[in-house]
Amino acid sequence: MSKNTNNTSGKYDLTALMVMAAAREVKNGEVVFAGTGLPMIAIMAAQHLHAPDAVLIYEAGTIDGKTISIPSSVADPRCVYQASVASGVANVFETLQRGLVDLGYLGGAEIDLYGNVNATSIGDYMHPAKRVPGSGGNVDINCLAKRTVYIMVQEKRRFRNRVDYLTSPGWKVKWWDEGAAQPKWVARKKLYPKQFQGGPSAVITNMAVFRFDETGTMYLDTVHPGKTVEDVKNNVEFDLNVKRVTGETKMPTKEEMDILYNEIDPEGIFLKR
């Protein structure tokens, strides 16, 4: 993920801005699935600020840990401190599949207009130009949580017309009729039962925040300070809807910065000094 840098056209802490944009997606009382890295910090920041009763679930098996030292991954012993339950992967995925998770944070190598994400390989899957780690829990969280938020790097080669491999489903997905080699594109909501009608709700990058409209198509919502709509358009392969821009992404406040750097990650594991 991106480093804490002074952005070229305005001096502010980009990582903190992205983390706080992610934190604002959490509502108080929600059950949130968080992966390693900035998502962990985002949910902890939300718990410190506006969502003290949010419940954090770690994919490796911990539910509602009260972390006092930032874990470096979801299987870290630091996740478990003062948790309600420390269990296994099956238990937390069962909780997810039971429809009890409100929000999940995810990442990926590529994303398309409908929020389909590639976390598997670049190029032809059979002969990939570059292999990336694979789904992990990306597909499960994105299929089964009520909302997901993607945190990604803004680059034209990552914001694609079509992702090379559809690891994690957006709002229009692939379906193969019996015996068909070629897929057709179908609305995700038609494929999934009534308890799983959620999906990607926001994408947060180093330049902007995107959301999805009623048809499940990505649009630009806010642009980070110092960046323009044109900058964002130049870093997206598809034809981006910019008619619904609501303004600039909110800057992190002094109080928020203090919580991020002094309360949540004083060791600088993810928030570099």
Binding site: A90, Q97, T120, Y125, M126, S135, V139, D140, C143, L144, Y165, L166, T167, S168, P169, V173, K174, W175, W176, A180, A181, P183, V186, R188, L191, Y192, P193, F196
Partner: peptide
């Protein structure tokens, strides 16, 4: 792993519908 552990040939789960993880070509 659970199916292996519990001695049944398969288990059902909801995720992955609509993705290349279930692409018959792959």
């Amino acid at each position: 792993l659970q199916a292996g552990a519990t001695g049944v040939p398969f288990l059902p789960g909801w995720s992955c519908l609509g993705t290349d993880l279930l692409n018959p070509e792959y």
